[in-house]
Design a binder for these strands. Structure first.
Lengths: 336, 336
DNA sequence: CCCTTTCATTGAAACGAATCAAAACTGTGA
DNA sequence: TCACAGTTTTGATTCGTTTCAATGAAAGGG
């Protein structure tokens, strides 16, 4: 029942283990006759290489880790796809962990990845992990931050300019005549949320007659959004905002559900709504959602490329902060 | 730069490697004074256990593999979450692979998982992998099929009765007076698709005056659905179906988009639409989608439990085919 | 026919952690 | 002081693969 090893293969084929290894790794070094005999033995025994042993010998794995804030968010699945495709091209595997916006789970995944001796880590951080990442780098495991710009210039990052994106979203709302803006998002400890809000505040400066209300949520999920939407719907009409900027599309979808429950508040007539990420479902929502598009797969593939470059460069690697521009996508939810 | 090993820790602490190992794995066997010295050395050197070495020694990993048809489908992310939660409780890790409905990628992931000596595999199969799975079982790696019932009674599976679900969906359409039904889905090689269609056919038998048209798609994605929806929209009105059953919600969302483009065909007035899976976005669609709900997280956790049980039972394990009942969820898209 | 070169093949050593029988302690009672 | 029973600690061995210096055999040159 226990699986066959090179030793068994070697014995059956009547060669040494070194030769079996050569057949596996440097077939050009081995004569045709021997190769055939070894192959036959491999097939007969159902030999499968033991990755743990290879890795132990090699000292490093052929994997990289990826920790995302929310594996159910299509933005991150797209990002992961981009990273995986790029990794596959280099014969690397991506191990995906879901921190669920929880610093504890994030740390647990980093532990795991260190124990696996991954080549590097792509991270969309929750807590303040910079000290931890510096420690990991000292141990030879580099990190590239994804979906948020590194404030520490010694780290590479691939992100979209969330400040500009937030500004863009609110400027758009203002340009359609809205004045009582609400920002729905949280927790503020998450950098993307903070930046998008900061961008929103910046846009507000251009309209002194407009007001910005901040409505905090527990997480960036449809459920949190629905709760926020319902709370707004239940307010007296006069106290409702006339436009909502949601920190991501999941929230926006939830807000929309919350607002429309029981023939509620019409969107965009009474309240305009814009999200962030432009996930595939945004266009398919009850009221097609305006959003700020991020090139998710491109972020993933670019980050992976930077990571592998940093991992393989002996020294003198210069970290890069790649910033893609966000793009406003206007749909029915913000039409006048 | 290369990381420290137990040997280094032992040297610094002035003890043997065996003692370091004991501190790590059986702290109760080691005196307080020594434990403290070893801990200090571990911290000082930044020692991190090498998983490859542990695994090699142990002979088996602490992971299970999961191969899904489409990692971007919320149904599967939910299923994965269920499996991961259950696995975490048993101190196991889940490695997720995305076959993307491609038999080649599926096989590649199975290869990878075998090399990693995973404890077992959860699989939502594309091709005919049964022979392969039997081979893996002989090598000590059991499989549990997810989201489709095993036709081979020697395999465990956790699924929803897709035949009943398909029947339920079409029976519902018929009960609202629809008569020209279309099934949108594919490829038919995927068992879930075939079963849901078979269920649809079964329901048709109760209504001799109704017709069922099958519209094949390349894949179970929003994009494929949109193409199908557009094709239907472009037909002369008389040749359009009056109800559509989409093989999953992603398709349904796409069909909806395709139908409604350029102020197209009204749903449900002219065409009713029902999907399958009841993903979170179904309720949030332009026209909230009726659907057949599957308990996705429960499928994942149940499958993981069966898998671990099979993996740890010496012999005489009796495979089980768990079948959950589907549930009809009626929303606006099929209202008369 | 011997010497050199080339080439395929060998086999021991390494990777890092876990195990476990044996050794080294400790303290107790005689 | 010694025997004995516990308790700690030791260190050689194991896991499966890769690597690489060494070996052997065959081919080519003089």
């Amino acid at each position: 029942m226990v699986s066959a090893s090179v030793k068994d293969v070697a014995a059956l084929a009547g060669v040494s283990v070194g030769t079996v290894s050569n057949v596996l790794n440097r077939p050009e070094k081995v004569s045709g006759e021997v190769t055939a005999r070894v192959q036959a033995a491999i097939d007969k025994l159902g030999f499968v290489r033991n990755d743990a042993a290879r890795q132990l010998r090699a000292g490093m794995s052929h994997s990289v880790g990826l920790v995302v804030l929310d594996a159910a968010n299509p933005f991150f699945t797209e990002l992961a796809r981009g990273a995986e495709d790029r990794a596959a091209a280099e014969h690397f595997t991506v191990l995906v962990g879901n921190s669920n916006e929880d610093a504890g789970r994030e740390a647990a995944y980093l532990d795991l990845f260190e124990q696996q001796r991954v080549r590097g880590v792509l991270l969309s951080p929750v807590g303040n992990v910079i000290p931890r990442l510096e420690q990991m780098r000292r141990r030879g495991i580099p990190t590239v931050l994804v979906d948020r710009q590194a404030d520490n210039p010694s780290f590479s990052s691939v992100a979209v300019d969330d400040l500009a994106g937030g500004e863009m979203a609110v400027a758009h709302l203002l340009s359609t005549g809205r004045r009582r803006i609400a920002f729905v998002g949280g927790p503020e400890g998450i950098r993307q949320v903070a930046d998008r809000l900061a961008g929103a505040r910046k846009a507000m400066e251009t309209a002194p007659d407009a007001t910005l209300e901040v409505i905090s949520t527990e997480s960036l999920t449809v459920l949190s959004g629905r709760a926020a939407g319902e709370a707004i719907r239940l307010r007296p009409a006069a106290e409702r905002p006339d436009a909502i900027f949601a920190a991501n599309d999941l929230l926006a979808v939830g807000v929309l559900q919350g607002l429309m429950l029981m023939g509620g508040v019409p969107v965009p007539d009474e309240i305009a709504l814009i999200g962030y990420d432009d996930i595939e479902f945004a266009a398919a929502a009850v009221v097609p959602l305006s959003s700020i598009r991020q090139p998710s797969a491109l972020i993933g593939s670019t980050a992976l490329e930077l990571l592998l470059r940093e991992a393989s460069s002996e020294a003198g690697f210069v970290p890069r902060q790649v910033v893609f521009p966000p793009e406003l996508v206007v749909r029915a939810s913000t039409r006048a």
